[in-house]
């Protein structure tokens, strides 16, 4: 690692101020950032830890019934505390990384990083969640802007994420066998006004909504409804773990399985 200063503020305001410094970078749980720093692939002058900010932690139900999760909430906490309110989300959180990673990694960190194979982006996009930062609210549809790219500006911190709770939902993750990230992951959520389907791991543009499947499932929420649909392999990721065609195929399989499991 290159040398850096370390700061651990206890409020969002302090963190935002600290991040105003030259070459400052926010540190969530560090489960991706620290390995990156070890490889010397990033050289922040200052790391601003968000782990000491109490107001960014926790899971609670908002007045409108949506589930709000603090940006600094660990995957393990979500897995535990969202289990009653939004089981599909809790289940997704319970399979991110491994137990030790889940005890450190945070939802805000995962979303800000927007790894194209991460699980949370699928849940956020698939739920039509709202990302709340220190400065504004960002709709999920506007937040994800391609691999490792988001609508966040420098020094902007995800303070919470608000999930409308669906009538039914499920996440199907097909493991990339080495990293245990999603080779393909599909999140299906059924709301009163329609079904959302978000796919991670598959596309070179990062997490995306599968519009055709959403339409078909909104008409008829059963696995067969997407049987005839195909994803174009062209924009899929092809690598040593799976070809473009294979990923495109998995999107269909996992969508059907998610619908079946969502019930």
């Amino acid at each position: 690692m290159y040398s850096f200063e370390f700061e651990k503020p206890s409020t969002v305001a302090e963190a935002v101020a600290a991040l105003g410094a030259e070459e400052a970078q926010a540190l969530g749980g560090g489960q991706t950032l620290i390995p990156t720093l070890k490889q010397r692939l990033a050289a922040p002058a200052k790391l601003v830890s968000l782990s000491g900010i109490a107001e960014m932690k926790g899971v609670c139900v908002e007045d409108d019934g949506s589930l709000a999760i603090g940006g600094g909430t660990t995957h393990a906490t979500v897995a535990r505390e969202a289990a009653d309110k939004y089981p599909a989300l809790a289940e997704l959180a319970s399979h991110i990384g491994d137990p030790a990673v889940r005890n450190r990694g945070t939802i805000g960190g995962s979303l800000a990083n927007n790894d194209p194979s991460a699980c949370y982006p699928a849940a956020v996009l698939g739920s039509g969640a709202t990302i709340r930062t220190n400065a504004r609210d960002i709709a999920a549809d506007d937040f994800f802007q391609g691999m490792f790219t988001t609508a966040l500006s420098d020094a902007e911190i995800i303070t919470s994420v608000r999930f409308p709770v669906p009538q039914a939902a499920n996440y199907q993750k097909f493991l990339q066998p080495a990293s245990r990230f999603a080779l393909v992951g599909v999140f299906v959520a059924r709301y009163a006004d329609g079904v959302r389907v978000a796919v991670t791991g598959a596309s070179e543009d990062g997490v995306f909504r599968w519009g055709e499947a959403e339409q078909a499932l909104s008409r008829e929420f059963r696995p067969d409804a997407v049987m005839g649909l195909r994803i174009n392999p062209m924009n899929m990721i092809g690598d040593l773990h799976g070809s473009k065609e294979y990923r495109a195929h998995l999107v269909g399989v996992l969508t059907r399985r998610a619908v079946a499991a969502a019930g």
């Binding site: 370390f6 651990k8 540190l27 560090g30 489960q31 620290i34 390995p35 070890k38 490889q39 790391l47 830890s49 782990s51 393990a76 491994d98 137990p99 030790a100 990673v101 005890n103 450190r104 990293s179 245990r180």
Partner: peptide
């Protein structure tokens, strides 16, 4: 160095964490 092997797992405030993936100051 990618936080996967788990040889470095310790308990921090009672929870398992990967100590090679956490700053001492944290």
């Amino acid at each position: 160095d990618t936080g996967q092997c788990g040889a470095c797992v310790v308990h921090v405030d009672g929870e398992a964490v990967k100590s090679c993936n956490m700053l001492a100051l944290e």
